[in-house]
Nucleic acid binder design. Structure first.
Lengths: 239, 239
DNA sequence: AAGTGGTCTAGACCACGTC
DNA sequence: ACGTGGTCTAGACCACTTT
């Protein structure tokens, strides 16, 4: 481990970012190979002429990102399975559509209380208690983009039954009135049946991407939503 | 902001984790509402009887997770769009299958050099240069689970043409010999045609989940892979 | 101009897991 | 037992951006 001087001129990246970059470069150049143990924090700090905390910050960040694996006493090693986690962006739909340059549109199709055993089971509420059903269509440049079918537990979202959902999506209302604590997201694919297919502008039997999300708040299950996307839609992410 | 004493008994979570938990609880209980500015680090440190660095660590972590938004001089606010990023796990398939309790199997269907304009375009190589094509089937309890079609740039993965791929997946070989630096992942859905459908054990036209991944290493594009999943397969993640 | 978060240092103690 | 990372403190300076 030869010495290494950091750039301390004004406007240069923070030292810990520079150290992070150096380490990442060594990994990616194959200088530190997967499974290898790298020098310890103390030695790196001496080599970089900085404090151990600064090195620690850099290495912790790389470990969080999946590039390194760290163990007390065992030292720091290059991960054998680097970057196995990809951040899946779940942006506000409206923003995503606008960002792509298209005009966003929203159409409320249906809303009201009704009983549904399947939804009650998903939301862990008694099967005989009515739930709020909201069905809406999100449009990009007037073309159907996403069909939203949502069941809401009124107990976790008091006021939802009186809310005006005709202009803005339910998600925005929930965001402000019933912040979520935890969510489980499932991404799958289905041959969609005729009624739904028509709504989203697809032919019956078309393969559509389905995102299914169940969310909980501080007082319990909030909502269960099924998002059916237009044909050809793909989720994209990078690492 | 009333005082708050941290638990310092042995075996209790680290102070910054306790502070993180306290803050998260206040957000989720609605005590700090989306958009609200929360007390500054100094005040919180006094209230918790700890150093500002400790508070900073906790709040930074919550900001990284998307619960808070922080600005110099502007203070720290509860995010109006909480938890918009979900970590999408991209585990080693073999591990994932084993973990689910099933027996993992692998069958190499085809491997060799060949020209393909589409793949060359994807990998950004000259269209007349041959690429390595690998097609393999991953099995769970002897049932088809994932059909892998992969194009590899031999220049970025020297030795791949001579590697023995009959027993272990290409991904493991690449992992050790050509670690990836960057990747773009696309998740979509397709009505799969008969030949592919047969291989994965589906009927023609079935809706299957497709994961498409392009990866780069230190010297350039490494591989482009298309993963076709068995009917009913869903990707799952939680926040 | 001033308040806020972002970071660095120097030193210390501790938890963990390997040796 | 002991080396390693994990964390905390106290103090300081700086960068940003709002007032």
């Amino acid at each position: 481990m030869e010495g290494f001087t950091l750039d301390t001129t004004r406007g240069s990246p923070a030292p810990w970012l520079q150290i992070r970059a150096i380490a990442l470069r060594r990994i990616q150049a194959g200088l530190w190979r997967p499974g290898d143990q790298i020098p310890n924090e103390q030695d790196l700090a001496i080599a970089c002429r900085c404090n151990r905390s600064t090195v620690s910050r850099a290495l912790r960040d790389l470990a969080d990102a999946g590039f390194l694996e760290r163990r007390r006493r065992g030292g720091t090693r290059v991960a054998t399975n680097p970057a196995r986690k990809a951040p899946l962006d779940v942006p506000i739909l409206e923003d995503a559509i606008r960002k792509s340059g298209a005009r966003y549109g929203y159409r409320l199709l249906k809303s009201g209380l009704r009983r549904c055993e399947q939804a009650a089971a998903a939301l862990d509420t008694p099967p005989d208690r009515p739930l709020m059903l909201v069905r809406a269509l999100h449009l990009a440049d007037d073309a159907p983009h996403q069909l939203e079918t949502r069941w809401i537990n009124p107990e976790s979202a008091p006021g939802i039954t009186e809310a005006d959902l005709s202009a803005r999506g339910v998600d925005l209302w929930l965001l402000q009135h019933a912040p979520l604590t935890r969510a489980v997201i499932r991404i799958g694919s289905e041959n969609v049946a005729a009624p739904e297919a028509n709504m989203i502008g697809a032919e019956a039997g078309a393969a559509l991407l389905i995102v299914d999300r169940k969310s909980w708040g501080s007082v319990g299950p909030i909502s269960w939503v099924r998002l059916l996307h237009r044909p050809g839609f793909v989720l994209e992410t990078a690492i």
